Simulated scan of single mutants.
Amino acid sequence: MPAAWRSPFLRKKAINAWCFGLTRRPGLRHNIRMSALYWHPTTNRQLDLSSRALPHALLVFGNKGAGVTAAARLVAEKTAGTATVSLVEPEGAAGAITIDTVRQLYSMTRSDLGGRHLVIMDEADRMTQEAQNSLLKLLEEPSGRTSFILTSHRPGWLMLPIVSRCQQLLIRPLTRQQARSLLTEAGINEADLRRRILLLGDGLAAELSKLSYDAAYRRDQFERAALAKSLLAGSRLDRLIAARKIAGDRQSAVQTLEIAARLLRPGLAAGQETAIDRLESLLDACERLQKNALIRLQMLKVAF
C-alpha cells in the first residue's frame, strides 16, 4: 500500500485498515474489511470491472449507508499498485472541500516529480462551487498519470460537466437474502431484533453492518427511529415533542430525517401519494439543514 499522503488537506490513512466508524471495544469486530462486505450481484460485477480497468474518473454513488466509501476504497486497494494514493475529505466547521484543497491536488498531480497518482475524493458533493470549477479543469485535462475516484450520496449536487466526465458506479441495496445472511453471520438471531435491523438498515450494506456489530450504535439508531416514527405518525403533540428534541443538534436532525425517509419506503413501494409527499418534505428539509438553514424552522415544517 502506498505511503505517500499529503497534509493537512490530504490526510494519511491506511486504506486496508479502514472501518465503518464502529466504536473500538474489546471483542468488537471494528475492522470489517471492504472485501468482507456483501454487495448486490450487479454492484459486485461493476466493482470487479472497475478494479480491472480503472477509468480516468470514477463516480461511486448510492444512498447513505450503502457503502459508497467502502466501495471506492476497495477499488483503490485493488488498483493502486505503486501509485501515490491521496484521500480528500470535507473538513472545517462548514464540512466542505475548498478550492485550496483542489488547487493543491492540481499542483501535486501536474508535477513532473513522482509517478502515478490515485485520488479518492470522499463526499465530493461537499465541494464548494469554486472547488468544483477547479476540479473540472483537472478532469478536462487528464495527465494520463492520475485517476480520480469520487464518492457521493447526492450526485445531483455535482456540476453536470463533472458527472458527465466520470464513469458511474451505483452501489445498489442488498437483496433480501443477502441482508438476512449478513445478520446471521453477525450472530443476530432473535426474530424481533432481526426485523428491526432489517427495517432500519433498508438493504444498505454499511448501515446493516454497523447495526449488526455495534450495539451502542444500534441503540442510538433505534432511539432515532422512535423519534422518526413520532414525526411521521404521532399525534400533533407527539410530533411537536419529537421536533423539539431533535432541534438542538443539526447532525442529529439530519440523521433522524434520513431514518424517517427510510421508514417511508413501504408506502412508496405501494405508490401511496401521502408517502411520496412526506418523502419530498423530508428530503427538502435534509438538504436545507445541510446548507445551514434554521434547524427549529425545518423541524416544525416537517412536523406540521
Rank of each mutant, 00 (worst) to 15 (best):
R11T: 15
M121T: 05
A124H: 02
R24W: 10
L138V: 02
P8G: 14
D238A: 14
I188K: 01
P2W: 06
E207H: 05
L37M: 13
R196Y: 02
R288D: 04
S111C: 11
L297D: 13
A76G: 04
L231T: 04
L198E: 00
S147A: 15
D192W: 06
L28V: 15
Q129K: 12
R278D: 01
H30E: 03
L294I: 06
L279Q: 02
C19Y: 09
S147P: 14
L204F: 11
W18K: 02
T98L: 12
M121V: 10
K12S: 13
L139V: 01
L231I: 09
A225D: 00
R180H: 09
I171T: 05
L264G: 13
R176K: 10
Q177I: 09
T256W: 01
W5R: 12
Q132E: 07
R262G: 10
L10D: 04
E140Q: 02
A285I: 15
V85L: 09
T274L: 13
I171Y: 01
L135E: 02
A4Y: 09
E77W: 11
R154L: 00
L138D: 01
L74E: 05
R165I: 03
L150P: 02
A83R: 02
G203A: 04
S152L: 01
G27I: 10
Y38C: 04
S143W: 09
L113E: 15
P55F: 06
T43H: 06
I99F: 04
L158Y: 06
R265G: 07
D100S: 14
H30T: 05
V85Y: 03
E287L: 05
A253C: 14
S181F: 10
P142Q: 14
L289S: 08
S212T: 02
Q290V: 04
R196G: 00
L28C: 13
P161M: 06
M34F: 12
R196C: 01
L118R: 03
R224F: 06
L227I: 08
E141H: 06
A96T: 07
T82M: 12
A303V: 11
A17M: 14
A191G: 03
R33T: 05
L268Y: 15
C286E: 07
A17I: 13
L22G: 10
Q255R: 14
L257W: 08
A96I: 04
V88H: 01
E91W: 09
V85W: 01
R176V: 02
V119P: 03
R29Q: 08
R250F: 05
G21D: 14
P2E: 01
E287T: 11
L136M: 11
Y213M: 06
R239H: 03
Q104T: 08
I162V: 15
R165K: 12
T128L: 08
K78N: 08
L22C: 10
I241V: 05
A216H: 15
P8Y: 05
M299H: 01
R45P: 03
S181C: 14
V68N: 09
T109Y: 00
I32N: 11
L118T: 06
G267E: 07
F20T: 12
E258A: 10
C166W: 00
L182V: 14
I246D: 02
